[in-house]
Amino acid sequence: MRYRIKLDIFEGPFDLLLFLIRKNEVDIYDIPIADITEQFLEYIEALQILDLNVAGDFIEMVAILMHIKARMLLPKSPLESDDEHEDPRTELVERLLEYKRFKEVSFELQTLESERRKYFPRRDFKFITFPENISTEEYLEKVTLFDLMIAFKRALESMPKVTYHEVRRIDVTVEQQTEFLLEQLRQKQMILFQDLMKQFKEKILLIVTFIALLELVRKGEVVVRQSGVFDDIRIKLKDAA
């Protein structure tokens, strides 16, 4: 018999872990990692998680459990005293408890939600017409950064769409630019990268020249030097260097 199981009964891997700890009636500070890991795997197998995003979260937890298991198998260093030796499980336990703390308070929030839903304030104030002379400050009182971001996004989206794209022939080749570079270097001994790029008005020309430069460096025909981060780059012919 096959069962289809809804994964959403567990909000995430921590829920499943807490459930397993409870089911096994073990002390949260002394989790039998090997057993729990095995059961955890059984569960996610049975849960048949199809959503990769969700599965990823659970698999990450398996990795954490395996890592802890491996660390627990390692012998304790003889130099470490008992006090110094940190239980590999500590971090996980702390995260579990932290999660549990918010999980529990979320139930209290749910109670508050139910309570408040019994009170109805007045709604719909459409009959109030806003005066024309409302100050910008007052008008923007409730506006958050996020509202502005959304407004900006909408403005961008409602911009007239450019439906054509111009394709131009690229009449420059890497070979041409390689020649050009070598010629320049023969004349000047050394060129600065900035100076080199400054003379190109078109982006494509700049790109092709850059590729040509990389090609020359790869072939070992030129050398490039830089004195510090963000400093200008000096380009020289190999034999001149």
Binding site: G12, V54, E60, F102, K103, S106, L109
Partner: peptide, 27 residues
């Protein structure tokens, strides 16, 4: 429940990044 849990984390820990929320919730 998902929303309540996340909202609880934000309410008590604000200001908080998504990454920190994910670290606590594990999802």
């Amino acid at each position: 429940h998902k929303a309540l849990e996340t909202l609880a984390i934000i309410a008590y820990k604000q200001p908080i990044t998504k990454q920190e929320m994910e670290h606590i919730r594990g999802v």
